[in-house]
């Protein structure tokens, strides 16, 4: 039982990160009906940019400066990505989804070109503190992940529930045609969702790096977890994506401990297929409200 609780705790921590990735994917899908397969590659590039600014490839900045600079660069990168596929978005969801794969390839190539394919380590500036609460071992990293996730998701909630652009986002995701008739700028809303998704991706990838090493493929290898989380949540629901992320985090930890560790992607595949059969609309289904 002690094992189980400790595993579940670690699962919640990594699940928070999957949730942030999934929220980004769902945001983009809700507003522009595009599945962004470049999400993992973009997040990986973001983590490498922070590495580059702090560890000397581009400069020796402090963490705060590096993160702020990278946030600004990511806003620009996401805007460029959206503008690249912008001519396709209203033509065909299918073609724009294919185009995101092209963006992913290009971003992956740029990451390898700029930073090489070596494995580097990127340490977060966290105090070295740990405590033991019964079976659970809490490190400062865990608390940082939980705190940052709570803040990010909370800010996103406020942004979507309380601001004009948030209301516009909800309107566009509910009915693009009607919102256009009402004079909303669909492109603006799309751009908003891409930029917010990119920023969430940056945060998630920075927090994921300490659990693994940073290499040109390590962050994008978490993309499947994020997609699985989005599928569990129904691909169309932001709270669903958060729940899905935590669910996937716990489930993967338990499966790799109790069965075998080398089948992560196979477990994810089976989870995706099972969820699609049992909860075709996601666990937080709004029957009749989601796109099929």
């Amino acid at each position: 039982m002690a094992d189980f609780i400790a595993l579940a705790w670690a699962g919640i921590v990594s699940g928070c990160l999957y949730a942030m990735g999934a929220v980004g994917i769902v945001l983009i899908n809700k507003s522009s009906k595009v599945v962004n397969f470049a999400h993992g590659n973009l997040a990986g590039l973001a983590a490498f940019l922070v590495f580059g600014f702090t560890a000397g490839t581009f400069g020796q900045m402090t963490w705060a400066a590096a993160v702020i600079l990278t946030l600004a660069i990511m806003v620009a990168v996401m805007a460029v990505c959206y503008l690249l596929i912008a001519p396709l978005v209203f033509q065909s969801d299918l073609t724009s989804t294919i185009a995101t794969l092209g963006i992913g390839l290009v971003v992956q190539g740029i990451t390898q070109l700029l930073f090489g394919s070596n494995v580097v380590s990127l340490d977060l500036p966290l105090p070295n503190w740990r405590a033991t609460l019964g079976p659970i071992r809490v490190a400062s990293y865990d608390l940082a992940v939980l705190g940052v996730t709570a803040i990010s998701i909370g800010l996103l909630y406020l942004l979507i529930e309380r601001t004009r652009i948030g209301i516009a986002f909800r309107a566009v995701s509910a009915n693009p045609f009607a919102s256009r008739v009402c004079g909303l700028n669909l492109r603006g809303v799309h751009l908003f969702s891409w930029v917010v998704a990119g920023l969430l991706g940056l945060v998630a990838s920075l927090l994921i790096v300490p659990t693994t090493f940073l290499s040109s493929t390590s962050v994008s290898s978490f993309m499947l977890q994020a997609f699985a989380a989005a599928v569990v949540g129904g691909f169309n629901s932001l709270p669903g994506a958060v729940l899905g992320g935590i669910f996937i985090g716990i489930l993967m930890n338990l499966l790799s401990f109790y069965i075998a560790a080398e089948f992560t992607n196979t477990y994810l595949l089976i989870t995706i297929l099972l969820v699609l059969n049992i909860f075709p609309q996601g666990v937080l289904a709004i029957r009749g409200g989601s796109r099929v």
């Binding site: 690249l84 396709l88 185009a99 794969l101 092209g102 390839l105 290009v106 992956q108 190539g109």
Partner: peptide
Amino acid sequence: DWVPILYGGALLAVVLGVN
């Protein structure tokens, strides 16, 4: 390292060009 960039670029060029 240029291979993914060229593949991705070709994909984007074809998709956007045809469009």
